[in-house]
Design a protein around this nucleic acid. Sequence first.
DNA 1: TTTTTTTCTTAACATAGGTTAAGGGTGCAG
DNA 2: CTGCACCCTTAACCTATGTTAAGAAAAAAA
Lengths: 193, 193
Amino acid sequence: MDESLDHKLIYYINKWVKLDPEEEKKILASFEKQAVKKKIKLLEPGQVCQYIYFIIQGGARSYYHDAKGDEHIYQIRLENNWISDLESFFSQQPSKFYLETLEESIVLRISPEVLENLYEEVPKMERYFRILFQKAYINSLARLNSTMWETAEERYNEMIKENCDILQRVPQTYIASYLGIAPESLSRIRKKK
Amino acid sequence: MDESLDHKLIYYINKWVKLDPEEEKKILASFEKQAVKKKIKLLEPGQVCQYIYFIIQGGARSYYHDAKGDEHIYQIRLENNWISDLESFFSQQPSKFYLETLEESIVLRISPEVLENLYEEVPKMERYFRILFQKAYINSLARLNSTMWETAEERYNEMIKENCDILQRVPQTYIASYLGIAPESLSRIRKKK
DNA sequence: TTTTTTTCTTAACATAGGTTAAGGGTGCAG
DNA sequence: CTGCACCCTTAACCTATGTTAAGAAAAAAA
């Protein structure tokens, strides 16, 4: 049901901050729903990132090109997660990243101005994002540590354990890049099983 | 001057949220100042992390032991930065980390309960920490990306550029570990200059 | 001042993953 | 249905860094 998809956002916010119906209404009114086909770019280098996206359904990735022109995955996000170029979104400076759908997706998006306004109207959203960013930061430090001290195989196994259907939904070239290894190395790891 | 040291915290908070004198007073009243000698442990594995620390002066590191008993640096923080085991601090579950001073230090510390209370009394603190964690998360993603795709030498050079006196203040074994390389590899890199 | 501990460096050898080149299979577009 | 693009695999060779062992210098403690 269409309405129940929107309420996925409300459901996830309610996990961390208790909203009353009036607050829920204001939050939903602040987001725009968008259906996007696969491989559609939501952001390109040089553009200022105008939205942070909550993925109701589907998935997206962010990536950039290095000095040699090689593509590197920066983020992979599937449904029930947020994606953006946060640096550009908050600083309103041009981004260096592409943001692209991995499959046909439905997202809820909000702009920085509307989000600032929402913080004023619904202060619990400030708390929600404080909790979201604190958890994201904790996870990111743990992932950094794994990348430094674990083998590529260990990291791959942990990724599969956490999200066993990602292999069906995301090309292995992207998974390899997200793990910080070459596609050939991922094949080499997979062959060991 | 003793009082001006405390106001370092206020100065940094005011960079992102504008406080009135009443709010400043409440904030300072919520923190405890602590002078700690070098190599003193603020946290050990098995303990629940009871404080988040703002370092007024000096520095600290967090580290853990891997399955082989090898020590790995997780965080290095110098003055005007925060340090804690955030996972343990917010979940109130036992930590896996040591938290130890790098040199004689002065810190301001706050417990989770007092911080929750402060969020109620001074809502701008919710905003301050939302901004702090969002920036920390952005930096952590960038650092993760560098670790994956840049050489150890490139990462070392960037670290030195950002903090040129860290070599005088932090043992090179710690710097190597923080960069995700062996001490011998750091010596090899330094030899190239 | 001396001894001990800590820190740092060095080099030979080992290894995980990168690079290069090649080829096969699947899915999509015309 | 066919051809092309994309995805994935494989292996030989290369490289950045790890490991091991050893030793020197500096700092700290007695």
